[in-house]
Computed example of a mutant assay.
Amino acid sequence: MDLSKIKMVVTDMDGTLLNSKHEVSNRFFEIHDALKKKDIKFVAASGRQYHSIIEKLEPIKNEILVIAENGALVIEKEQELLVTPIQQDLKDELLDALGKIEGAHAMLCGKYSAHFDGKSAEFLGQLKEYYSNYKVYENLYDVTDEIVKIAVYHNKSAETYIYPAVKSLEHLLKVKVSGPNWVDLNHADAHKGYALEKVMRQHGVSSDEILVFGDYNNDLEMLQLSNFSFAMANAHPNVKKVAKYETLSNNDFGVEHILEKLL
């Protein structure tokens, strides 16, 4: 495996760069300094909101590119490079459908703030990990913000309880099981692969020059863009099928392990 041509490193956050305590290792920040000296660009690509990603990567926030909300928002140095919102006329239709799923809690994700309804209040302690900027509404139908993603949470299993109920919407939207408890609904063009392809074109980077890490179904499209795609040991089986290589788990510094080989 010859990594000598790599110009860009792209990694998912939860289950990939972050350990199970949602932490970025000091080891990674040291590695990033070495990547920077070699002019290798770092991209964080996550289903998280922009501010939540930046909080995790605060020491290097002005040196990286961020793909947030599953690719619906791309920002570099506080400048918006791409915004792909959900069609406004679909929002109420989606809220109607999601309201019929027992145990589901929907969040409307604006570019910089998430919107919860009062029924999700008991889960706010958990949800704050992913949505640091948020507002609570009595009725989500009252939200007028431009929405880039609808995230749906289930405390048992998103794949079992939420995905079957929204699978029929896949002709209208990008529907992704993004974690054990989450299903994300985005504009059909708003996914990590679409956003990363734009970033690669802008920076003149080819499939041979990019290293990509992921662990869940919302990473599939971006993994397919790289000849050096890595599934984490803890990855969903679908990811292991698509990725060309496998690394250690997120708790065993799987990303750092490969980046040290790159350096």
Rank of each mutant, 00 (worst) to 15 (best):
E170T: 12
V66L: 12
K37Q: 14
S46Q: 13
H22E: 11
S207I: 03
H105R: 08
V212K: 01
A44M: 11
K240H: 06
V255K: 08
I54S: 09
H105G: 07
K36Q: 12
L140A: 00
N139L: 03
G254P: 07
A45E: 04
R27L: 11
I150H: 02
N19H: 08
F123C: 03
D252H: 10
K192M: 03
E30N: 14
G204A: 05
K261C: 01
Q88Y: 06
S132Y: 04
Y194N: 12
K100L: 13
N218C: 06
M13Y: 10
K244A: 14
A165Q: 15
L90S: 11
A235H: 04
I64C: 14
S249Y: 09
N70F: 04
K241F: 04
L94N: 05
T16Q: 12
I53H: 09
H191E: 04
Y161R: 02
P180W: 01
G118V: 12
F213Q: 06
L223C: 07
S132K: 15
K176N: 14
H203V: 00
N26D: 14
V177Q: 04
A104N: 08
M1V: 14
H236C: 02
S46P: 15
K38T: 02
L173F: 07
A243N: 07
S132N: 11
R48H: 10
K119M: 11
V143W: 08
H115D: 05
H257A: 08
G118D: 12
E63S: 15
T84E: 13
D252P: 00
K77P: 04
E78N: 14
Q79V: 15
D2R: 06
T144D: 12
Q87H: 09
L98R: 01
N181L: 15
I147S: 09
A97R: 05
C109V: 14
Y50K: 13
A165T: 10
L35G: 02
V9A: 11
S25R: 02
K36R: 15
